[in-house]
Every structure is written in C-alpha cells, then in structure tokens.
Amino acid sequence: MRFQSLFGLIALLLVSALLSPVNNGRNVFLEPQNLLNIVRFASENGIIAIGMTLVILTGGIDLSVGALLALCAVCAAACLMRYQVGTFPTVLLTLALGALAGWVNGTVTTRLRLQSFITTLAMLSAARGAASLWSGGYAIPLAFGMGKDDAPPGFRSLFAGQISLLGLDIPVPLFYFVSVGAAVAFLLKRTGFGRHVYAVGGNETAARLSGVPVSRVKVIVFAFSGMLAALAALLHIALVNQGSHIDGAGYELNAIAAAVIGGTSLAGGVGTVLGTMIGALILAILDNILGLRNIQSEYQLILKGIIIVLAVAMQRRQER
C-alpha cells in the first residue's frame, strides 16, 4: 500500500518534469530551488497531516487543526509582538496551547462519549472565535529586528530560515517535517503506544478487552494532533510574517487528503506516517506544477479532486 503511494509520487514527479516550462534550456520544475520550495510548502501541511494520521488511525477525525493553527498563530504572534516574551517561551507556550486544545478534544470525546467529528467540529468553531477575540479582528504583523517593539530575529531563523547543506539552502521547515515524521513513525512502529493506536482503530471493543487504555490513547493522539498544529502555526507565522485569525481555513481537509492519499483508512487501524508524508508531497507537487504551468485555478481544483479519488481507488484495488 505504501509502495502504491510511492509509485504515485514517482509518476507525478516524472509527469511534472515532462510538463514543466523550460527557461533558457533549464527545466524549471527540476531546479533545486523549485524542489526545495515544494518541500517547504509540503512541510506545514505534512506536519498537520501526521497528527491527523494518528487520530484517524484510532478511528477518529480532527476537524479542528486548521482553526487551532489560527489560534496558535495568533498566540505566537501576540507573545512575540504584544507581550515581548522572547522566542523560547513563545514556542513553549504555543505548543502547550495546541496540546491543551487537543487534550480538550480528546477528553470531551471520550468522557462524553461523543464522536470526534462532533467534538472537533465544535473546537473548530470555538478556536476560531477565540483567535478572533484575541487578535482583535486583524492580523498581528511580525516585525523582526533588534528594536524595542520588534520580534527577535532568532524566531524567524528558527522557523523560516535556511541551512546550507551540500551547497543547497535547505529550508528549515523540511527538518521539522522529517524529524516529526521519523519520531512519529518510530512511535507507531516500535512502541507499545503505537500498537495501542492501531489496536484501538482496528477494533475498539477487542482492544478494550485486551486491557488497552482506550480513552487514554485517544486523548493522547488528539493532544498530539493539537501540538503538531501548533508547530505548523509557528512555521506558518514565520513564513507569512503575521499571525492571523483567518489563517488555516480548510487546512484540516488538506491534511485529511494527504493522509488518505498516503493510504490511511478513514475506518481506522490502517495507515503509515511515511504514506502520509508522501501524500503531503504529492499535494504540494500538484500545486506547484499547476502553478508553473499557469493553469486556471478552477481546473486546478477539479484536477485535485480527480487525483484524490484516483489515488484512493488505486489503493483499494491493491488491497483486494
């Protein structure tokens, strides 16, 4: 199944390279700078999608990630600009806020025995409202510099900087993406917690009867998803230079799309982190090549829909 999405990625890369515009004899799509741009933009969605994958694996869904991204973006921007607390406390507070919101998602879901679709839908609404109140209805712009009212430039280099490696300027979001992916993949494959995640999604009753702490597992995955949304928010504000309450609209759907293209089953119990990462890359490449070809946005939307269905249908066939 994983190979299926990998195959899809390679096929898309080939098609994109073929269709790419050529400038002065150079293939624009294959230029290192362009490829780095793709992974930079895939990273944000990819990180959210990894959290989403955890939740989906337990048989749930997290619709609140986009709104949590907005809330955490406002939180981080406010911490940096209004309260001037410095980089490190900002990062800590923002991640804690995301994890807390996720914890609330999980606790409400398990304690009140609601479907996570409903609880996270409620959180989506609540988080947007809170973000709008907090920001005052306008985005909080970030000005980096050493001045009194400026945000520490260290924050930007930490989340939107570049690292020179092998002669390439690697955007730092890629490092976050890869390390989060590796950590969560290890968590799922090699730890007891990971086994519990798959068991809860595979058959909740059997998992409970096998002594798996089902509620605790669910609360943890939601908290994880919230925290990864917060991490994405930090990358987001460093990229767009502002924390806005309207950001992240529809991000939950992109994250679900990445997970599903990567072979995660919405029924729970089936899916891998690597698959999701590939799914996020596929979506980013698609956006990029359609942009490079200057294709009208309506066609982009239609094409994206078709590709999602195709990707999932092909995996279904493979399963049979």
Binding site: A199, G202, A206, G269
Partner: peptide, 26 residues
C-alpha cells in the same frame, strides 16, 4: 468483534494484552 483485531497481524494480536512485558522504556 470482541477478541481479535482482524486487520492486524498474528503477532500484534497475540501480544496486545501482554505488551507491557515486552517493553523497555516504552
């Protein structure tokens, strides 16, 4: 519906209840 998680492997099913015994630092 109650005992086995049919989509998971024989190994994962078998050790699910006794997983604690196979863990070192999680």
């Amino acid at each position: 519906t109650q005992s086995l998680i049919s989509i998971l492997s024989v190994r994962h099913n078998m050790t699910l209840a006794a997983l604690k015994g196979f863990l070192r630092a999680g």
